[in-house]
Nucleic acid binder design. Structure first.
Lengths: 331, 331
DNA sequence: CTGAAAGCGCTAACAG
DNA sequence: CTGTTAGCGCTTTCAG
């Protein structure tokens, strides 16, 4: 038995002859090492949990932001024979209440480490991570701590980049659609928006901001109302910038239903660079995030952390690049 | 210790007073039962693996067909406190060769059961499932066996439905784009296409069939070549039906680049009913599959199977419904 | 109602 | 180079 273990794990000395016999037997019996015994022994399950709670219902699965990251994560993990435990739905805790507990997969020893996408860490979360020394990586948040790894997009600068492009094309009246209470990425982009207005001495108009969920929704009431109100108003923007592609695509769909011409009446920009945006008509002008790269880097960081728990946690930013569609035209 | 176990699992007799003390301690110590010990003991990990090998590279993650199913699966599994192990990438086997082994997660005891999406079971796979009595559910395939559960769409009938609609609108010259060697769903739809032509005494023209991958691809050479060839030919279809929405959306994008007007020059139909298709311009006319329902049903079947392994496996078909866009117009 | 013993499958440490 | 022992955390079984 011990010999079998040595053969499988490739450590320790086993006579060539014995090794072959063991391998033969493994083959014949179609034997697989039972991860449970192995894991119970060395406290390592070779599984990384990927978390993405989506509080307002719906799943991450149709949002290319999450799925792009997920793909990058899985590719990298597969290289190292790790598996992904996917966790996006609330579930009952001991008291029978439905809630999303970030640490559950780790606490139950279903995962060695956690990667969190699209959610914000509270200070009490951070305390937990520090106390329990939970290997943790956050994508798209900038928690104020040195006990987690962080992957992020240069949201603020990225947003300014696309604004600068629009500015150079003559746009001065610029709206922001899709500001979301809970999405940190979009909030950062909004900061970029505000700073840009400031830089260029443009006036911030609360009337040009639409606060609404950032998920795809052709019936988004806030957007419909805003476009309707502008129909009968003379102060309206020439450009609608959107917090992400989903909002931009929804806005285009809504505009079309309302018979508003894009980009003739309003130019529109997105942020994310999802494939879907390139199938719209007009094609969306947007910023592309290197999602797969970001996911892979998250996996790399966390695997590395498992090997070297003492190494300091770091933050890594990724730049976004412009995708030129036809939804942004000169004034 | 034994008492703690009884409290957590809610079985056996524990004095009310003792129970409270234990619960208090659990709370205070932030104790979580270690799944490994538990699982090693009762051979049950409370994890279901979801498999979706994508041989030609790329991930399932940007294909709404897979992600829709995945979402349905996760919602149902969360209800029963099961987790998902996601497995879509090949990985090294013992011999160091990269391959996708359907049974690995089960064999390694990383999962109690397997749900396979978008792949075909070979007879040797089926033998393995039968011999090892692996709890298995397939979505979108109709394996010739009674030892797996099966969820499927009524592909053939569904395809005929949309063809019938087009026929009634006057279409007689009908193409099929996106026939794929490996996708069983699309092959079934193709059978529906062939049977329909036969029913209506329309001529099957090999020239009207494009065999190509079914993934989104704006640079799909087969499609480009075909459209180009039709530009300089007088025998061309009035309608291009596509094996799925991805192909339809790609075809529309390619047509636009080639300055071919849709639907004026060709009507186009899809199959799947992905949200993306409703953001195109014109909106895609397509058939909607109830993906989330299908995923949930798969999860339900497999959880039920784990409780009652002796119950017979069944097959469950889901009907598709028409989504009317503007990509299909009368001749 | 609660505790003690044994064992699930594996591997670290040690003995041979 | 190979085998033995012990223990990972839990639950089943049997005693108290």
């Amino acid at each position: 038995m011990m010999t079998v273990s040595r053969v499988i794990n490739g450590n320790g000395y086993v006579k060539e002859d014995t090794r072959n016999k063991v391998l033969e037997a493994i083959e014949k019996l179609d034997y697989y090492p039972n991860n449970l015994g192995r894991s119970l022994n060395n406290n390592k399950v070779n599984i990384i949990a990927v978390l993405a709670p989506v509080p307002q219902g719906g799943g991450i699965e149709n949002d290319p932001y999450y799925t792009g990251l997920l793909y990058g994560i899985e590719v990298k993990l597969a290289e190292y024979s790790y598996d992904i435990l996917l966790s996006t739905q609330r579930r009952k805790n001991i008291k029978g209440k439905h809630e999303f507990n970030y640490f559950r997969p780790f606490n139950e020893r279903k995962a060695d480490a956690l990667i969190l996408m699209g959610a914000h860490l509270s200070t009490s979360d951070i305390d937990t991570i520090r106390e329990k020394r939970i290997p943790f990586c956050v994508i798209g948040d900038r928690p104020d701590t040195d006990c987690v790894h962080t992957i992020d997009t240069n949201n603020k600068e990225g947003y300014k980049k696309i604004l600068r492009k629009a500015f150079d094309m003559g746009h001065r009246e610029i709206a922001f659609f899709g500001l979301d209470e809970i999405n940190f990425n979009i909030q950062e982009r909004f900061v970029g928006y505000c700073e840009f207005l400031d830089e260029k001495k443009l006036i911030y108009r609360e009337d040009f901001i639409v606060r609404c969920p950032h998920r795809p929704d052709d019936n988004n009431q806030e957007i419909i109302d805003k476009l309707k109100s502008w129909n009968s108003s003379k102060t309206r923007p020439t450009l609608i910038t959107c917090g992400n592609d989903n909002v931009a695509i929804s806005t285009m769909a809504i505009a079309r239903k309302m018979n508003i011409k894009i980009p003739a009446q309003y130019s529109i920009t997105g942020f994310d660079g999802h494939p879907t945006g390139q199938n719209t008509n007009p094609r969306l002008t947007t910023m592309k995030q290197p999602l797969e790269e970001m996911g892979s880097e998250a996996a790399r960081l966390i695997l590395n952390h498992l090997d070297n728990p003492e190494n300091p946690c770091g933050m890594k930013y990724f730049d976004v690049t412009l995708i030129e569609g036809e939804s942004l035209i000169p004034v």
